[in-house]
């Protein structure tokens, strides 16, 4: 038992027929931290998350070891689900019911006493800024409100671990920022957070550690800032007008270059050399900027689409 971790997974495998969705994934998440799982569609993120609360069964593999607060999801899924809040990728509210009734039903699933449930619901609607929508039908809610309601629902049991599968996909920037704020405040209160996301910004904003997955495999793991430092040059000159590449060829000889039909990227930690190159370009030809997690992600998982995306 790995008692210092909220979550401990080692050698996790999950196959669907011949497709290996999760291939030997290991990680551990200390309490009160946020662990972000990044990867393109089909990377195995959702499948991996589902194995943590019994929604997917991992392959029977002798080396697999899983613990969520000391409980094995393969045996104690009910204990785990009592301790966790889960926000699945797809909205799954009861559309016939109103906002409060949706939460009432779940309060019953946790066998919360009526009065305590009422207070908790009022508190969470307020927390997720849905207080005014208490009696609104789910059909009348916007996408962002539905998402916030699902997060409120996942917080009903005051979870020690919050599992979120792409919590902000498809939401506008305001709602996304609001959700990030709420997640940060939960983390401060001691909640451990596990989330998957496509948004590098999201991972950078709230994750203490990120795991990049691709085709079921672990690509890299670590603190996002540190990963950037370790794996990527500090700056990138992004050339949109590819016909200018010739002009820069000699100057940028030896600089790490990634080219596609519409773009050439020059990566370097030496800002001066990129600045010099940029000076030779006309306005609009390209842009010089710091590298970000998206660059790292694309370098790690490839720039082209794979057959699962």
């Amino acid at each position: 038992m790995n008692s210092s971790s909220a979550l401990f997974v080692s050698h996790l495998f999950k196959s669907y027929g011949t497709l290996r969705a999760v291939n030997d994934i290991s990680f551990s998440v200390p309490p009160s931290t946020c662990f972000g799982v990044l990867g393109p569609n089909g990377a195995g993120k959702t499948t991996m998350m589902k194995t943590l609360y019994g929604k997917a069964e991992p392959d029977a593999h002798p080396d697999t070891h899983m613990e969520v607060f000391g409980f094995d999801p393969r045996r104690d899924q009910l204990r785990i689900k009592t301790l966790c809040g889960i926000v699945p990728q797809e909205d799954n509210l009861d559309v016939e019911l109103n906002v409060e009734q949706n939460l009432r039903i779940f309060a019953d699933f946790y066998a919360m006493p009526r009065k305590a449930a009422g207070e908790r619901i009022a508190y969470l609607l307020d927390f997720m800024e849905l207080g005014e929508k208490r009696t609104a039908r789910v059909r009348e809610l916007s996408g962002g409100m539905k998402r916030r309601l699902i997060i409120a629902r996942a917080l009903l049991n005051d979870p020690a671990l919050l599992i979120l599968d792409e919590p902000t996909t498809g939401l506008d920037p305001q709602v996304r920022q609001l959700i990030w704020d709420k997640l940060r405040s939960l983390k401060r209160e001691g909640v451990t957070i596990l989330l998957t996301t496509h948004y590098m910004e999201e991972a950078f904003q709230i994750a203490d550690t990120i795991l990049i997955m691709d085709k079921g495999n672990r690509i890299m793991e670590g603190n996002p800032r540190r990963l950037l430092e370790e794996h990527l040059e500090r700056n990138v000159l992004e050339l949109m007008n590819v016909s200018r590449a010739e002009r820069l060829a000699q100057l940028l000889d030896g600089v790490h270059t990634e080219a596609s039909a519409e773009r050439v990227l020059y990566f370097s930690s030496d800002l001066a050399v990129l600045q010099e190159a940029a000076a030779r370009l006309d306005p609009g030809d390209g842009v010089l900027r710091q590298t970000n997690l998206e660059d790292l992600f694309l370098r790690a998982t490839g720039r082209r689409l794979n057959e699962l995306q």
């Binding site: 009160s32 607060f69 009592t82 301790l83 066998a111 919360m112 049991n157 005051d158 001691g190 909640v191």
Partner: peptide, 18 residues
């Protein structure tokens, strides 16, 4: 042990499933 994992702000944790 679990309350500790939640940190100082830990409140009630519903430990057992219904």
């Amino acid at each position: 042990p679990l309350a500790k994992l939640r940190g100082a702000a830990a409140h009630c944790i519903v430990g057992r499933p219904p």
